[in-house]
Nucleic acid binder design. Structure first.
Lengths: 343, 343
DNA sequence: ATGAAAGCGCTAACAT
DNA sequence: ATGTTAGCGCTTTCAT
């Protein structure tokens, strides 16, 4: 291994040519600059031989481009965001981009810091799962001409590309399904949040109930990393509301905790309580009975986001119209929402 | 917002002082360089006022330090590695480091490329979950003086810090537990791999059987992203071996697929087949019956790894002895390994 | 106590 | 067709 990192100058000197020529060859400008094939060969061969790699820091400093994408998600250890991160990573690396990521835990202040940090690092583009009240920071990014794609949540006051799912219809549809199965006292247990996507999920639920002349009952939970807190809140809620015959969970985290509570309390699903969750997990398929779930198209979400961003990155001039793409979920019906009293 | 990014030169000019002074103040060398408090105040105030942020690319180019840690895991969407990534991220950001990550999918070639990419980017230190045959690349890193911490798997031929769990004892202990519960035809279903940790897990299992005069039966599975493949292999295995009365799974992925197979085949746990898995998941706790699991100390693993790396980063000279730290798992006994015939 | 200037490794406009 | 050179924005030695 080379004891000392070599630079383009070393290459040039060894080959008795100028740095410029080496740089042109290395950047594929040889033909355009009419450098002889013979010389190109010679440079390429030598570079390969000594294993020279350009210093990408210097390159970035010079070009202002870092070939890095900043990925800001709610929590990288959540299977939903983790899977998204994996798909995004794959596509990014295939296109010569690296990923620098962070988890926000929905903390606006932390997110601000992270955006600022990423900006320092001259990240070329951003994929962001935005927490509340982050509009201004994202707009600042956009003002500087940096491409941003919003994921999982769109922001009405931010004019940029977004990829989301049809939250309102998803919960509306799921609730209608429960009603169709004979359930009447349907509660929704969900993350408390002013974010659009959670708001829409609650709205879809309420809409379906209203259409059927039923009363909504929403138990709002705080955002927390602490599963115990969620479990306690859900337990006290379920114990206090004896007549609930079905529950719609707003997020996978709420659902996982909720199911643990039901198991602990010995609540039989679906005989005593039907269950529908938002976002699939192995646990729901393995559960007895299997849990009916609103399945999000995770790969498509990730795919669309990264593709849109790469597109913007590769066509900086193209002033293509921004758009919010809404992908559709699928209600996968399993045993947990079986028809009431149809044993 | 500033239309143009300002540099240290702009600051210096506005304040009618030199770049050097600004730099000293910004890097906390003011006192050492005996710069007057009054001037320090003035610089700090102005910098804050205009929201100046040093260009970290330029800084890195100059200092050779990027304040970035490269995290190379098997698969960021796996709950085990995702959780590790989250803890590492938290600690890193708190210490002024950013994380750039990638998933290897245990692909050695991909890992080599990633290491090379990270090296280009002047990553300061590495946390690596190594795939097979990567020893040479890691040794190259070490030769260049770059700190590397190995996670989840140690490499006998690589002399650096590692953090692992006591794999051999874990499966030995779990197998003894199954034997103690009255099971005799215990199979192990596990990832096929020459990696130390998988090898040790198989060894622990075999050791326990041998001590009890029982015969091992290992079904080896390939590493794949495709759950369907695993499910098919496990299904055909379970169907062909009618007399198995207990299964020990080597990884959470194998176990999740295996449980799906058992559910599909209608195999009753533990009456027809007891189950123990390696590495916990919500699915195992929610399963009926709950699944007995070898629980890894994920937070401690991550914590130890990042702490060790940060330590090396902060004390470059300190030629502290490398060590392999082995953390202990916990066998959490649940219903899936209840005593045989004790209904 | 503060400043001038060199240089990290690269790109690209300009020159030949 | 190839070379010269001026920066990108920062740190840091050396000078004052």
């Amino acid at each position: 291994m080379p004891a000392k990192k070599l630079s383009i100058a070393d290459i040039a000197e060894k080959l008795q040519i100028s740095k410029t020529t080496v740089s042109f060859v290395l950047n594929g400008l040889a033909h355009e600059k009419r450098i002889s094939n013979e010389l190109v060969e010679r440079v390429l061969k030598y570079v390969k031989e000594v294993g020279y790699k350009p210093n990408s820091l210097a390159k970035s400093l010079r070009t202002g481009k870092s070939n890095t994408i900043g990925l800001i998600v709610e929590n990288i250890s959540d299977p939903f965001f983790g899977t998204i991160a994996r798909f995004i990573e794959d596509a990014a690396y295939k296109n010569g981009y690296k990923i620098i990521y962070c988890s926000t835990y929905n903390d606006t202040q932390k997110t601000k810091e992270m955006i600022s940090m990423f900006r320092d690092r001259h990240v070329d583009g951003y994929i962001i799962v935005p927490p509340e009240n982050i509009e201004e920071d994202i707009n600042d990014l956009l003002k500087e001409g940096l491409p941003v794609v919003l994921l999982d949540r769109s922001l009405p006051m931010v004019d940029t590309d977004s990829v989301i799912v049809n939250n309102l219809f998803s919960t509306y549809n799921a609730t209608q399904h429960l009603i169709g199965q004979g359930y009447r006292n349907i509660a929704m247990i969900t993350l408390l949040s002013k974010q659009q996507q959670m708001f829409d999920r609650a709205r879809g639920y309420k809409l379906a109930l209203k259409e059927n002349g039923l009363k909504p009952l929403i138990k709002e939970l705080p955002y927390t990393q602490n599963a115990k807190t969620l479990i306690e809140r859900i337990a006290s809620f379920l114990k206090s509301k004896k007549n609930i015959d079905a529950v719609l969970f707003g997020t996978n985290r709420d659902a996982t905790c909720g199911l643990k509570v039901m198991n602990t309390l010995g609540i039989r699903i679906p005989e005593e309580m039907a269950v529908v969750t938002f976002d699939d997990a192995d646990a729901y398929e393995l559960h007895t009975p299997q849990i009916t779930t609103i399945v999000q198209p995770i790969e498509e979400l990730a795919d669309h986001a990264i593709r849109t961003l790469l597109n913007k990155l590769n066509n900086p001039g193209a002033n293509t119209k921004n758009q919010t793409v809404t992908l559709h979920t699928e209600l996968v019906i399993r045993g947990s929402s079986r028809k009431k009293n149809s044993k």
